[in-house]
Design a protein around this nucleic acid. Structure first.
Lengths: 212, 212
DNA sequence: CATAAATGTAAGTACTTACTAACAATAAAT
DNA sequence: ATTTATTGTTAGTAAGTACTTACATTTATG
């Protein structure tokens, strides 16, 4: 077999096994067997278990596709932007579920390696969406609030739902269902961030929360 | 030393070490040494490493205190209820940070043991808050939406923030800062769930989201 | 003080781990 | 077809793991 093919198979297998059983819970013998090669081949290609792990993290990093599609979205209505971004975020998490699992379980043992991936994905996404919210604020469409925190609120709803269902619950959520859920999340976020005048609101609605 | 004191020390030490280095990354030798006893003492008390781990999970389970305080809150204004519950939720996560770390890193290896804890805490909290939202909907204070999903949205914001900062970021968030952040989360949730008429809104605000 | 409960010491077992050495067999490239 | 790159086989090492046994020592309690 060609060198690159063998390495590819080993990387795949390592990603899967470590996401299922953890770094320490996965043995090099097992990886090699599941990849259909000898343990020695594994070491000839990657030198050590830890180097193999590092290559896995580099190879299966998140794609920055969400950041790329946002500029095209800026002419769509607010709720469509949130919906498309939200669904894209969830689908990315689902595609990279194995990587997410590894990040969660190995963050304490390899914080540096994991944080590089985490920041490269989340920070940029937050910044992009926050800039968009900030833009809508300046156009007086959204009420005043911290765009960074609102972004984290919206993405946080989705991430927590993913965590609860797909990671902790071990369930696989259908596309239809997640679209419905994210639709509700979008509604809450829209009503929660739109300027009241945009909602055709009268004045003196500051105490609206206290009269219950 | 008294039996109970030794066991207590061992349980504490196990919680801390496993939360830092994972179940497989923590050796019984190390636990015993850090607890100031012999490895043999550990086995005499708990029989096996796994049984010790189970006792740790049982002992340091989340307290259901949030559920208990909610009935007293029902006469407070909506925003105060959310704020108090949100801060309480975050503080609980922070207090049990070690347990949260263990749950995240061992969910794949011991899904049954972990899910018992997870469900015992989260499910009940969601149900309680969702019932409260449902109650406000029936009194026509909140607009129609799924109470369960809205609850998960609100708690999800907070949980994700906790994950991002305290777990992935390794930062410790001050009480002052988290109160400010949760204040923003509460604002979004309130505006996102209150009935428009409560916001003194005119009719025909259905298309408000599409005219951007 | 005396009895019993708890802990320590030390040695060891059976097993698993990441990783290596020497040599033979196979597949790919020229 | 022949060289070269890649893999397999087999055996092994040194270290670490959870856990045990037998016996001595300490500590708490009545």
């Amino acid at each position: 077999m060609k060198k690159s093919q063998t390495e590819e198979k080993l990387l795949e297998t390592t990603l899967r096994l470590i996401s299922e059983k953890g770094y320490l819970g996965t043995t090099t013998r097992e990886i090699a067997r599941e990849a259909g090669v000898t343990e020695l081949t594994l070491f000839r290609h990657f030198g050590s278990k830890e180097k193999l792990f590092e290559k896995v993290l580099k190879r299966y990093t998140f794609l920055p596709k969400l950041k790329e599609i946002l500029p095209e979205l800026e002419r769509l209505p607010y709720d469509d932007v949130l919906r498309i971004l939200g669904i894209g975020f969830f689908e990315t998490l689902k595609e990279r579920k194995s990587l997410v699992k590894i990040m969660l379980s190995e963050i304490n043992i390899y914080p540096d390696k994991i944080r590089i991936i985490y920041n490269g994905f989340i920070d940029e996404l937050i910044k992009t969406l926050a800039d968009y919210l900030s833009f809508l604020q300046k156009r007086d469409i959204l009420r005043p609030f911290s765009p960074g925190i609102a972004t984290r609120a919206f993405l946080g709803m989705i991430f927590s739902y993913f965590m609860a269902e797909e990671i902790m619950g071990g369930r696989i959520i259908s596309k239809r269902k997640i679209e419905k859920i994210i639709g509700e999340f979008v509604n809450i976020t829209i009503h929660g961030t739109l300027k009241k005048s945009t909602l055709k609101v009268t004045e003196a609605d500051n105490e609206c929360n206290s009269n219950l």
